[in-house]
Nucleic acid binder design. Structure first.
Lengths: 189, 189
DNA sequence: TAATTCATGTACCAGATGGTACATGCGATT
DNA sequence: AATCGCATGTACCATCTGGTACATGAATTA
């Protein structure tokens, strides 16, 4: 297939950027780190921005994939919430998440190559999580705000974990949140 | 005084960077945006990194200052928590906060000029907030995790607000959190 | 096998980059 | 009034930047 090599190349670039970020990496540095030439990056992606656009799309897709099987088994709410955190706090994901937050920061300044990211970073998650709360018995706006708060708290905890590495306190904090957010069942236990 | 001009210059740089971020601004662009020459920036700060170090220090100081008078009146916990959010969600602070998160992202990759930031971004807040929870009756580790969770949730909500602007939902989510985190008073109402 | 397309290398470009050398103005101290 | 140190301007530097032009191999197709 044609775009096969391109995809493999993108893979290697994304993996590279997960290690050290992209903001101060030149096209040539990215290329050499990914085992190719800056000429090839331009051939496949048109420009540095074109490459970053694809990188962002990829990270966004990984995000979606991570969400997909998260609510697979819908047992009790606290357990779902715990799974949520346990999954994200996995050290193996740290590089990907650092890259995620770096893109997030650039998106705050409306960089045009972050368009797809901005569109999905909240929306793609808020919907499903809201449905989850609905499923567990919270109605309409109450489910919405609970979903939004869950998303925010989780990301905040993750950001803290990534920068301090204080896993114990943050695991405890995440556990507390799981209990708090699901605590008073709306219709009664 | 001597370093007076330098301080004023730093002021103008920080204000400029609040608007569009710094990651892709060259020394010359920063200089011209701040109404000076790149020569002057190098004169006062030694290098681009030197400048960024000072910028980071400044943003970190602003952070501390914002914290200072926050817990001034210690009435009831929910109200303190509300004040916390109302203060941070002020649209006038948005540019400063975007810059804050941009620095945060760079700190995730251990850029050396973010040292002071990394050291204080959590520590400077966790302590005081923990004391607050202690003051309201939660003991030791419980106060600690509650403080950490509060910090995380607030920052997560802020990050969401900055990128979506969905003020209504997020105000509602923040209100919910204020209620949840302070809800079951440990020793009784 | 001839033609065409895709992938890749080499060489180059104009412009910007961070940083330096050196001159010079301008206010205070003497 | 001469001197001295801080502040600032001009000019320059080697290096790197994203991007392009052009050649050429290596398949695929006709």
């Amino acid at each position: 297939m044609a775009g096969d090599a391109r995809e493999a190349l993108l893979d290697r670039c994304v993996n590279l950027l997960k290690e050290g970020g992209f903001s101060q990496l030149s096209l040539r540095e990215i290329a050499s780190g990914a085992g190719t030439s800056h000429r090839m990056l331009l051939y496949h992606f048109g420009s540095r921005e074109g490459l970053l656009t694809e990188v962002v799309r990829r990270v966004e897709a990984e995000q979606r994939a991570a969400l997909a099987d998260l609510a697979a088994e819908l047992d009790d709410p606290v357990e779902v919430s715990r799974r949520f955190w346990r999954r994200l706090a996995d050290p193996a994901l740290a590089p990907a998440e650092r890259l995620f937050f770096e893109i997030y920061a650039h998106a705050l300044f409306d960089k045009s190559w972050t368009d797809s990211f901005r569109a999905s970073v909240i929306a793609a998650w808020a919907g499903p999580v809201e449905e989850l709360f609905t499923h567990f018995g919270w109605a309409g706006p109450e489910a919405r705000r609970r979903a939004r708060l869950s998303l925010a708290a989780t990301r905040g905890l993750l950001l803290d974990l990534l920068i301090t590495g204080d896993r114990d306190v943050l695991d405890a904090a995440a556990e507390l949140f799981a209990e708090l957010i699901t605590a008073p069942p709306p219709t009664g236990a």
